[in-house]
């Protein structure tokens, strides 16, 4: 599914004394099958932007088209297209409510009007896809699970709706390093098995470098940079002005370059850094 964002503008509390422009004239296209990283300072408008992509928020100006259909229309076509866009919020485990894991994961598919059998089948697949043992966990109360498990259940709940686009808002927030890695692996797994288009909002540049093939940078409600991870993270100074970091490997190479060594700085991973350092210092 291709998503096109055109001149998107949103204002909170329009007309009131505390009116704030949350996003202004944002334009970009998400190609089907791509993995887009969305980065920016807290308050730059990332959360507001993603809520427009599946019609949760209606823009003041501009539009979001999914496969050519405006997501805000009240038409059947629009509803169909919205259903294919899955959105996982920050700390999604806070949305769990059912008596059993299976029932909670079935909530989404049920709302799509699918039969109990199909719902359960999808839920099973989704639970396995997020790395849980579907059979073992399906009858347990979601509230009896650990934090990491709860989060996976919540993500499975969105996957069970079989979206074509998956938007994840800081899926590793609050997790310890192991949990963080597990979630990243899960995302890679999901991408591999379902060929989804993924939009990842994150503060972690290493994650973006590892997973994304296209990066969008937001600042103060506007889209200020767009490009491949290598091209974006090479612009060290501009990112620093925006208060953003670069991936650890890139930062290290940039440090070496500043010391005068002829090292490449379009490096994103530890492996690439290793090769380059050996090339110069080995």
């Amino acid at each position: 599914m291709r998503i096109e964002v055109k001149d998107l503008t949103h204002i909170y509390s329009e007309g009131m004394p505390f009116e704030t422009v949350a996003i202004r004239q944002v334009n970009f296209t998400v190609e089907p099958g791509s993995f887009v990283g969305l980065i920016g300072h807290t308050g730059s408008g990332k959360s507001t932007l993603i809520q427009h992509l599946n019609g949760l928020l209606k823009p003041v100006e501009g539009s979001v088209l999914a496969d050519g259909v405006d997501v805000c229309e009240k038409s059947e076509a629009s509803r169909n297209v919205r259903r294919k866009i899955g959105l996982v919020f920050q700390y999604p485990e806070y949305q769990l409510f059912e008596e059993t894991v299976l029932k909670d994961v079935c909530f989404g598919p049920k709302n799509l009007g699918l039969s109990q059998d199909v719902c359960e089948e999808r839920s099973f697949h989704a639970l396995n896809l997020v790395g849980l043992d579907a059979e073992g966990v399906k009858d347990r109360s979601p509230f009896s699970l650990s934090g990491g498990e709860k989060r996976r259940v919540a993500i499975a709940g969105v996957l069970a709706m079989d979206p074509e686009v998956l938007i994840l808002d800081e899926p590793t927030a609050g997790l310890d390093p192991k949990g963080h890695n597990d979630v990243l692996e899960m995302i890679q797994n999901i991408r591999r098995s379902r060929e989804l288009t993924i939009i990842l909002v994150s503060h972690n540049m290493d994650d973006i470098a590892r997973l994304a093939d296209h990066v969008l940078v937001m600042e103060d409600g506007a889209l200020v940079m767009e490009g491949s991870p290598k091209s974006i993270f090479a612009q060290e100074e501009k990112l620093r002005d925006l208060g953003l970091a670069v991936p650890s490997a890139t930062a290290l190479m940039q440090r070496l370059a500043r010391q005068g060594y002829p090292v490449r700085t379009d490096i994103l991973t530890a492996a690439e850094a290793e090769e380059e350092i050996i090339r110069i210092f080995g």
């Binding site: 809520q51 599946n54 949760l56 259903r83 899955g86 959105l87 919020f89 999604p92 806070y94 949305q95 909530f107 989404g108 049920k110 709302n111 799509l112 709940g157 969105v158 709706m161």
Partner: peptide, 16 residues
Amino acid sequence: DETDKIMKAQTARGAD
């Protein structure tokens, strides 16, 4: 705020 977030999350799952 919590109410708003939960409503949005459930709406994204098709809740009406």
